[in-house]
Design a protein around this nucleic acid. Structure first.
Length: 920
RNA sequence: GCGGGCAUGGCGUAAUUGGUAGCCGCGCCAGACUUAGGAUCUGGUGCCGUAAGGCGUGGGGGUUCGAGUCCCUUUGCCCGCACCA
């Protein structure tokens, strides 16, 4: 009987769907295991062979855990709001919902062909109103809460109001915007709108003026992680800084917890490090400098991590956007300052980056007083100081900070070294080491002691305080687009009000066009009579990360209309045990999601503080492009080895008409009309193509489609081959040519069960050799799966199969366990063989043999040894190696075998299994 | 510039974690069965050498009886961050 994978795979996929094989319910009698994939954005291009890599790995793990007796939650859904569908709508007028729907069904078809064990009854789509109801709900909860830094917890805003009423805000330690202190009486006297704008400074979801990344081409703002090198990640359009009023999430309030709790999760070190850098905690001090513009005097606060260098401050620098600029600019300097600030404002982020090396700045005309030396020092403005970090103002210590140094050299400002023996004639001395000098009470101290000593003194003198700063900013939450979640917010007398939770979801209105209005308002402004109880509704929509921040919770209880996730469902499924996805979400989704989860945790809606216990980043699968070489000015193509003889142009050729780097010449002639009459210069009768590893993309003709692989080789082959390609976490190019190996393996595996075309298994007792092969396989595959080393597990299957062929083994007691082991990787063929073995339904591990170490012992082998003097040996000795055998060559002493002069050793018999030290 | 990672046959990789380097697969070579093979099976395949033998994990050095693995140094590639005071 032939291995007809097309028929087998289709039949079993239907069987699983019909029987709801992978549907799960909460079941307290079984341990739970939650395996999650990062759900895809359903793009119009469909899946290429690189996309399912992580899905295959997670599916293997899910099936494995099921066999191990776990109740496995393994859901899938779609991150369905997004820019491409909207861009497509702008071009074609087709509604994004329609495009999205179409793309989703294409994705679903492709996913189904690969044989995933998803519980599709739990599917979620972020663009579905019954789903985004809970995105909007979470936003309203954030609106209704503030963050208490003392308690490190989100609390209801109603509690804050009663505190205000009782004692004002003087004792409150909250994460908030710029506020002035007030008493209970002053709070009482505030108008309704004053009270609201005060509360807005405290809310976790708040509306505030901020400098945003504005992308004019897309007509919307972008988050920091959506911008790379001054260009939008999606589309690559230029992005500039602009001040706008935007909804924001107070992610920065959670910075400390987001940082600390990284220690609790099992993620790769590199990913944790990326998050740590993104959060960017730095300890230092805020210091107050008295500044004067000649008429008025102010207290200006700066942040520094090097309080110890305060004796070397020779000037101060403000960011051009700093609010101090206006106050400190003297009339004489006004013109120069205005021009500088204007020029800086005009620049895009990209231009600023490009000019990083250039130094520019302007003097304000004002002077500050060094709180320790009393010296008068000039206050400058320069772009190298960022408005968004610290207080937007710094004390400059050119001797010990390279940026200050460059600036001081450019504008001829004094440089005052503070560390004994350091040379600052060519560059600054940035290292935090050495002995301080010229530094008053700090002189003579080591830098490491001087830093805390300086901060202590700052606090003692009342000129500042210890302070921890974070780079993590609040998340800009407004997008001026159509295809996103609407904000459940309306405006009354210019004040933002939350809608009632009962009125959720607030659905997207229909619009005639998906473009901004002529007056520059977001597309939603086109819905003329869209209102809430007669009041206008917020016109921007939420960003992409809104819908993906809590989807893993919704999977636990996807149909619940009363709450995001019930206490029971959340209590059972708890958190994601294994999350598989790409690194590209390291500083976006994976931060927002953790923030969102912590917020819901504070409110008591979820029981776990961290959402993703273990995270594995699968590597990217790149394309492997092929090239042909055309002699310039002709239609003649020369094979790779001959191309240097001519002046040629390298041209991408479709990898699907190249086999093993050999061009299918007929297919090439048919591929494009231009090549119909192409001529070829061959080597050894063949046309050899060049190749390169590049991103998989249509324009490089290197896209390989999973459907095509399923059609030609089968889903089981695809699954195993993707795993066999190399370590899961490593990036690697796709190369179809190696696929025959795993395909051959499956065909041979199938044939093992047949004799003369008939299914035939022997019920005879297996031989020790056969059992050894089986148990070696069990041990290897189980440990490999647990360690996510899927490539070596596939090798182990191949080795075992080779051995079974050598042994001509067709014993049921060996092959049935083999099926069980393999079924995670190649489920279809295993289901089929399992049925042929006479079992009802899907593969199960009910009578699976336990891994037995006894059968793992390799044959002993002799290890040649040469001695010269003292040796320490660490040997792998078999437990089957009898004491007498060992005694014959060395004298045993517990775990140490001691060589003696009386028993000269020429050889030691070595067997893997146990480590024993041999001291000679 | 800072941080993280990687380097092994023609190719993808493996190596019991300091113990016979190159498992498994691709490709290639030879053979069998075949009208045929993009089917199947058998054998071979790190490099040099007819062989004996020698050389071999990017380069150099070190520790060790022993190093792909540990340490120092150097080169090359990949990823992340980037004026964060």
């Amino acid at each position: 009987m032939e291995y007809n994978f097309l028929e087998i795979e289709k039949r079993w996929q239907e069987f699983w769907a019909k029987n709801g094989t992978f549907k799960v319910e909460t079941d307290p009698s079984k341990p739970k295991y939650y395996v999650l994939d990062m759900f895809p954005y359903p793009s119009g291009a469909g899946l290429h062979v690189g996309h399912p890599l992580g899905y295959i790995a997670s599916d293997i793990f899910s099936r494995y855990k099921r066999l191990k007796g776990f109740n496995v939650l393994h859901p899938m859904g779609y991150d369905a709001f997004g820019l491409p569908a909207e861009q497509y709508a702008i071009q074609t007028g087709q509604h994004p919902a329609h495009t999205t729907e179409k793309n989703i069904s294409r994705y679903r078809e492709q996913l189904d062909r690969i044989g995933f064990s998803y519980d599709w009854s739990r599917e979620v789509r972020t663009c579905d109103p019954s789903y985004y109801k809970w995105t909007q709900w979470a936003f309203l909860e954030m609106f209704a809460h503030w963050y208490d830094l003392t308690a490190q917890k989100a609390k209801p805003i109603t509690e804050l109001i009663s505190i205000f009423e009782k004692e004002g805000n003087t004792k409150i330690n909250a994460s908030c915007g710029d506020i002035t202190l007030f008493t209970a009486q002053e709070w009482e006297k505030m108008s309704e709108s004053e009270k609201e704008s005060t509360l807005m400074q405290y809310r976790i979801a708040y509306l505030g003026e901020t400098s945003v990344n504005w992308c004019a081409a897309l007509g919307t703002v972008l988050a920091n992680d959506e911008v790379k090198e001054g260009l939008s990640v999606r589309g690559g359009h230029p992005v500039e800084q602009k001040k706008m009023k935007q909804w924001q999430l107070r992610v920065s309030a959670y910075a400390e917890r987001l940082l600390n709790d990284l220690d609790k999760v099992d993620w790769s070190d590199s990913l944790k490090e990326m998050q740590r850098n993104w959060i960017g905690r730095s300890e230092g001090a805020e210091m107050i400098f008295k500044v004067s513009n000649g008429s008025d005097e102010y207290d200006m606060v700066i942040f520094t991590t090097r309080a110890d260098t305060v004796f070397g401050v020779t000037f101060m620098v403000l960011a051009p956007e700093s609010e101090w600029v206006e106050k400190l600019t003297t009339p004489a300097q006004k013109e120069a300052v205005d021009e500088y600030v204007k020029a800086a404002g005009r620049k895009t982020e990209r231009e600023r980056i490009a000019e990083t090396k250039k130094v520019s700045g302007v003097f304000t005309g004002s002077y500050a007083t060094n709180p320790f030396t009393g010296e008068q020092i000039p206050v400058w403005i320069s772009e190298y100081v960022l408005a968004g970090y610290g207080t937007g103002a710094i004390m400059a210590v050119p001797a010990h900070d390279s940026r200050d140094y460059v600036f001081a050299k450019a504008y001829n400002l004094p440089i005052k070294p503070l560390i004994e023996g350091c040379d600052v004639s060519q560059e600054s001395f940035d290292a935090k080491e050495g002995v301080m000098c010229n530094s008053g009470f700090l002189s003579g101290m080591n830098v490491k002691e001087a830093i805390p000593a300086a901060i202590e003194e700052v606090e003692k003198r009342g000129v500042g305080k210890r302070k921890v700063n974070f780079r993590l900013r609040d998340a800009i939450f407004s997008r001026q687009r159509y295809w996103g979640e609407p904000f459940p917010v309306y405006y009354k007398d210019g004040i933002a009000h939350p809608m009632s939770i009962e009125d959720l979801p607030l659905e997207l209105p229909e619009v005639d066009k998906f473009l901004p209005t002529e007056s520059g308002e977001p597309p939603l402004a086109r819905a003329a009579d869209w209102n809430y109880k007669g009041y206008p509704i917020e016109k921007s929509t939420m960003p992409g990360f809104a819908g993906s921040s809590a989807y893993y919770l919704r999977y636990m209880d996807p149909k619940n209309d009363g709450t995001l996730v019930s206490k029971e469902a959340n209590g059972y499924w708890q958190d994601v045990d294994l999350y598989i996805g790409g690194t590209e979400h390291a500083t976006g989704h994976l931060i927002y999601s953790r923030f969102w989860n912590k917020f819901l945790f504070d409110l008591g809606y979820v029981c776990k503080e961290e959402p993703f216990k273990k995270l594995v980043n699968q590597g990217m699968i790149q394309g492997r492009s092929n090239f042909v070489y055309r002699i310039k000015g002709t239609n003649k193509f020369v094979s790779l080895g001959l191309k240097d003889k001519y002046d040629t142009t390298e041209i991408h050729v479709d990898v699907n008409i190249v086999n093993n780097d050999k061009l299918d010449i007929d297919a090439f002639r048919k591929w494009m009309p231009d090549y119909a009459n192409a001529e070829f210069e061959l080597e050894s009768g063949e046309y050899i193509c060049g190749w390169a590893v590049e991103k998989m993309s249509k324009s490089m003709f290197n896209v390989v489609n999973p459907d095509m692989i399923c059609e030609n080789y089968g889903a089981d082959t695809l699954r195993m081959y993707e795993m066999f390609l190399g370590p899961l976490e490593q990036s690697k190019p796709w190369d179809t040519k190696g696929i025959d190996g795993v395909n051959r393996f499956l065909k041979r595996f199938w044939r093992l069960f047949f004799e003369n075309g008939n299914f035939a298994l022997s019920d005879a007792e297996p031989t020790p050799q056969e059992l050894k092969t089986l148990h070696k396989l069990i041990g290897k595959v189980e440990s490999d799966i647990e360690n996510f080393s899927f490539n070596t597990a596939v090798s182990a299957f191949m080795i075992a199969l080779n051995e079974l062929y050598d042994l001509k083994c067709n014993k049921r007691a060996v092959l049935e366990p083999f099926i069980v082991l393999l079924s995670s990787f190649a489920p279809h063929i295993c289901e089929e063989l399992w049925t042929l073995c006479g079992h009802e339904g899907s593969v199960s591990a009910a009578s699976f043999p336990e891994y037995c170490e006894e059968y793992t012992i390799e044959d002993t082998f002799e290890y040649p040894v040469s001695f010269n003097g003292k040796m320490r040996f660490k040997l792998l000795l078999s437990k089957s190696l009898s004491a007498a055998e060992v005694e014959a060559v060395v004298r045993s002493n517990e775990n140490t075998l001691r060589y003696t002069a009386e028993s000269p050793i020429k050889k030691i018999i070595v067997v893997p299994g146990k480590i024993i030290n041999v001291v000679i």
